[in-house]
Protein backbone atom coordinates (compact mmCIF):
# COMPACT_ATOMS: atom_id res chain seq x y z
CA UNK A 1 0.00 0.00 0.00
CA UNK A 2 2.67 2.42 1.07
CA UNK A 3 4.63 1.82 -2.12
CA UNK A 4 1.53 2.30 -4.20
CA UNK A 5 0.79 5.53 -2.38
CA UNK A 6 4.31 6.75 -2.93
CA UNK A 7 4.18 5.94 -6.62
CA UNK A 8 0.87 7.74 -6.86
CA UNK A 9 2.21 10.80 -5.02
CA UNK A 10 5.36 10.96 -7.16
CA UNK A 11 3.41 10.62 -10.39
CA UNK A 12 0.99 13.31 -9.18
CA UNK A 13 3.92 15.56 -8.36
CA UNK A 14 5.43 15.01 -11.78
CA UNK A 15 2.13 15.78 -13.47
CA UNK A 16 1.75 19.00 -11.46
CA UNK A 17 5.33 20.01 -12.34
CA UNK A 18 4.72 19.42 -16.05
CA UNK A 19 1.51 21.44 -15.85
CA UNK A 20 3.29 24.35 -14.15
CA UNK A 21 6.08 24.31 -16.72
CA UNK A 22 3.52 24.26 -19.51
CA UNK A 23 1.64 27.20 -18.01
CA UNK A 24 4.83 29.23 -17.57
CA UNK A 25 5.89 28.49 -21.12
CA UNK A 26 2.51 29.47 -22.54
CA UNK A 27 2.56 32.70 -20.51
CA UNK A 28 6.02 33.52 -21.81
CA UNK A 29 5.10 32.98 -25.42
CA UNK A 30 2.05 35.18 -24.87
CA UNK A 31 4.22 37.93 -23.44
CA UNK A 32 6.57 37.69 -26.37
CA UNK A 33 3.63 38.02 -28.72
CA UNK A 34 2.39 41.11 -26.91
CA UNK A 35 5.75 42.84 -26.84
CA UNK A 36 6.20 42.13 -30.53
CA UNK A 37 3.00 44.00 -31.22
CA UNK A 38 4.05 46.95 -29.15
CA UNK A 39 7.51 47.39 -30.60
CA UNK A 40 6.30 46.85 -34.14
CA UNK A 41 7.65 49.65 -36.29
CA UNK A 42 5.29 51.67 -38.40
CA UNK A 43 6.28 51.81 -42.00
CA UNK A 44 3.43 53.34 -43.89
CA UNK A 45 3.41 51.63 -47.26
CA UNK A 46 3.73 54.43 -49.74
CA UNK A 47 2.68 53.56 -53.25
CA UNK A 48 5.54 54.35 -55.64
CA UNK A 49 4.03 56.15 -58.57
CA UNK A 50 5.91 57.24 -61.68
CA UNK A 51 4.67 60.79 -61.40
CA UNK A 52 6.10 63.00 -58.69
CA UNK A 53 5.30 66.42 -57.29
CA UNK A 54 7.30 69.01 -55.44
CA UNK A 55 6.36 69.96 -51.89
CA UNK A 56 7.68 72.58 -49.48
CA UNK A 57 8.39 71.55 -45.93
CA UNK A 58 9.53 73.73 -43.07
CA UNK A 59 12.45 73.46 -40.67
CA UNK A 60 13.86 75.75 -37.99
CA UNK A 61 17.21 77.45 -38.43
CA UNK A 62 19.99 78.53 -36.10
CA UNK A 63 19.32 82.11 -37.23
CA UNK A 64 16.03 82.87 -35.48
CA UNK A 65 12.86 81.24 -34.21
CA UNK A 66 11.18 81.10 -37.63
CA UNK A 67 10.56 78.29 -40.09
CA UNK A 68 12.57 77.96 -43.31
CA UNK A 69 11.34 76.18 -46.46
CA UNK A 70 13.03 73.19 -48.12
CA UNK A 71 11.82 71.58 -51.33
CA UNK A 72 11.23 67.82 -51.59
CA UNK A 73 9.86 65.49 -54.24
CA UNK A 74 7.14 63.07 -53.23
CA UNK A 75 5.19 60.41 -55.15
CA UNK A 76 2.04 61.85 -56.63
CA UNK A 77 -0.20 59.16 -55.18
CA UNK A 78 -3.92 59.34 -55.89
CA UNK A 79 -4.54 59.30 -52.13
CA UNK A 80 -4.16 62.57 -50.27
CA UNK A 81 -3.39 60.68 -47.06
CA UNK A 82 -0.42 58.97 -48.74
CA UNK A 83 0.91 62.32 -49.91
CA UNK A 84 0.50 63.81 -46.44
CA UNK A 85 2.31 60.81 -44.96
CA UNK A 86 5.29 61.43 -47.25
CA UNK A 87 5.48 65.06 -46.10
CA UNK A 88 5.47 64.03 -42.43
CA UNK A 89 8.10 61.32 -43.08
CA UNK A 90 10.35 63.93 -44.74
CA UNK A 91 9.86 66.18 -41.72
CA UNK A 92 10.91 63.37 -39.37
CA UNK A 93 13.87 62.49 -41.61
CA UNK A 94 15.16 66.02 -41.02
CA UNK A 95 16.66 68.88 -43.04
CA UNK A 96 18.98 68.56 -46.02
CA UNK A 97 20.14 72.18 -46.15
CA UNK A 98 21.71 74.13 -43.35
CA UNK A 99 18.60 73.92 -41.17
CA UNK A 100 17.82 72.15 -37.89
CA UNK A 101 15.63 69.12 -37.20
CA UNK A 102 12.28 69.81 -35.57
CA UNK A 103 11.03 66.34 -34.63
CA UNK A 104 13.02 63.64 -32.83
CA UNK A 105 14.37 61.36 -35.62
CA UNK A 106 13.14 58.31 -33.68
CA UNK A 107 9.53 59.51 -33.98
CA UNK A 108 7.30 57.17 -35.95
CA UNK A 109 4.29 58.17 -37.96
CA UNK A 110 1.50 55.81 -36.95
CA UNK A 111 -1.41 56.97 -39.06
CA UNK A 112 -3.06 59.94 -40.70
CA UNK A 113 -6.80 60.54 -40.91
CA UNK A 114 -8.42 63.40 -42.75
CA UNK A 115 -12.03 64.36 -42.11
CA UNK A 116 -14.39 65.77 -44.72
CA UNK A 117 -14.27 69.24 -43.19
CA UNK A 118 -10.49 69.37 -43.69
CA UNK A 119 -9.09 68.46 -40.28
CA UNK A 120 -6.06 66.17 -40.52
CA UNK A 121 -5.32 63.97 -37.51
CA UNK A 122 -1.66 63.01 -37.39
CA UNK A 123 -0.93 60.12 -35.06
CA UNK A 124 2.69 59.95 -33.87
CA UNK A 125 4.53 57.49 -31.62
CA UNK A 126 5.47 58.54 -28.08
CA UNK A 127 9.03 59.50 -29.08
CA UNK A 128 7.64 62.79 -30.38
CA UNK A 129 7.46 64.04 -26.79
CA UNK A 130 9.79 61.66 -24.95
CA UNK A 131 12.81 62.67 -27.06
CA UNK A 132 11.72 66.30 -27.42
CA UNK A 133 13.81 69.05 -25.74
CA UNK A 134 10.65 70.69 -24.27
CA UNK A 135 10.42 74.45 -23.80
CA UNK A 136 7.91 76.81 -25.40
CA UNK A 137 10.04 77.73 -28.40
CA UNK A 138 10.85 74.14 -29.34
CA UNK A 139 7.21 73.08 -28.89
CA UNK A 140 5.85 75.93 -30.97
CA UNK A 141 8.37 75.30 -33.75
CA UNK A 142 7.78 71.54 -33.83
CA UNK A 143 4.01 71.92 -33.91
CA UNK A 144 3.88 74.63 -36.56
CA UNK A 145 6.48 72.84 -38.71
CA UNK A 146 3.95 70.00 -38.92
CA UNK A 147 0.86 72.22 -39.28
CA UNK A 148 2.36 74.64 -41.82
CA UNK A 149 4.03 71.89 -43.89
CA UNK A 150 0.69 70.12 -44.32
CA UNK A 151 -1.60 73.11 -44.85
CA UNK A 152 0.89 74.83 -47.18
CA UNK A 153 1.00 71.91 -49.63
CA UNK A 154 -2.54 70.57 -49.38
CA UNK A 155 -5.32 73.15 -49.59
CA UNK A 156 -7.77 70.39 -48.66
CA UNK A 157 -6.16 70.31 -45.19
CA UNK A 158 -7.35 73.34 -43.28
CA UNK A 159 -6.31 72.43 -39.75
CA UNK A 160 -4.22 69.79 -38.06
CA UNK A 161 -4.61 67.94 -34.80
CA UNK A 162 -1.75 65.96 -33.30
CA UNK A 163 -2.44 62.59 -31.66
CA UNK A 164 0.10 60.49 -29.78
CA UNK A 165 -0.12 56.67 -29.68
CA UNK A 166 -3.64 56.95 -31.02
CA UNK A 167 -4.87 59.24 -28.26
CA UNK A 168 -5.37 62.91 -27.57
CA UNK A 169 -2.56 64.26 -25.38
CA UNK A 170 -2.77 67.51 -23.43
CA UNK A 171 0.63 68.89 -24.50
CA UNK A 172 4.00 67.65 -25.76
CA UNK A 173 5.90 68.67 -22.62
CA UNK A 174 3.66 70.99 -20.65
CA UNK A 175 3.17 74.00 -22.91
CA UNK A 176 1.15 74.17 -26.11
CA UNK A 177 -2.40 72.78 -26.04
CA UNK A 178 -2.70 69.74 -28.33
CA UNK A 179 -6.34 68.96 -27.53
CA UNK A 180 -7.65 71.18 -30.30
CA UNK A 181 -6.77 71.34 -33.99
CA UNK A 182 -4.26 74.01 -35.11
CA UNK A 183 -4.87 76.41 -37.97
CA UNK A 184 -1.72 77.30 -39.93
CA UNK A 185 0.45 80.23 -38.84
CA UNK A 186 2.23 81.33 -41.97
CA UNK A 187 3.65 84.37 -40.18
CA UNK A 188 6.13 81.95 -38.62
CA UNK A 189 7.64 81.33 -42.07
CA UNK A 190 10.82 83.31 -42.62
CA UNK A 191 10.19 84.42 -46.22
CA UNK A 192 6.82 85.87 -45.26
CA UNK A 193 8.51 88.30 -42.91
CA UNK A 194 8.74 91.95 -43.85
CA UNK A 195 12.23 92.80 -45.16
Amino acid sequence: MKRKERILLISLFIIVCILIILIILSLKTEKIKVSREVTQTYFPNIEETTEKREVTIFFPSEEDSLLYPEAREIYLTPSLIQQAKQVILELIKGPENNHLPTLPPTTKLREIFITNDGTAYIDFSKEIYQQHPGGSEAEIISIYAIVNSLTYNFPQIKRVQILIEGLEKETLNGHIDLTKPFSPRFNLIASNKEP
Partner: peptide
Protein backbone atom coordinates in the same frame (compact mmCIF):
# COMPACT_ATOMS: atom_id res chain seq x y z
CA UNK B 1 7.46 80.85 -14.70
CA UNK B 2 9.40 78.65 -17.11
CA UNK B 3 12.80 78.39 -18.74
CA UNK B 4 12.93 78.05 -22.50
CA UNK B 5 14.44 75.30 -24.66
CA UNK B 6 15.28 75.21 -28.32
CA UNK B 7 16.92 73.11 -31.02
CA UNK B 8 18.98 76.26 -31.70
CA UNK B 9 22.18 76.29 -29.67
CA UNK B 10 22.42 80.07 -29.84
CA UNK B 11 18.83 80.75 -28.77
CA UNK B 12 18.91 83.25 -25.89
CA UNK B 13 16.91 85.89 -24.08
CA UNK B 14 13.56 86.22 -22.33
CA UNK B 15 10.13 85.80 -23.80
CA UNK B 16 6.76 86.52 -22.24
CA UNK B 17 3.73 84.79 -23.68
CA UNK B 18 0.04 85.34 -23.44
CA UNK B 19 -2.68 83.13 -24.82
CA UNK B 20 -3.61 82.91 -28.45
CA UNK B 21 -6.67 80.93 -29.28
CA UNK B 22 -6.78 77.99 -31.58
CA UNK B 23 -8.47 80.22 -34.07
CA UNK B 24 -10.37 77.54 -35.90
CA UNK B 25 -13.18 79.13 -37.85
CA UNK B 26 -15.84 77.45 -35.79
CA UNK B 27 -14.35 78.59 -32.54
Amino acid sequence: IHTNASYRKSAHGSETYFLSLHASDEE
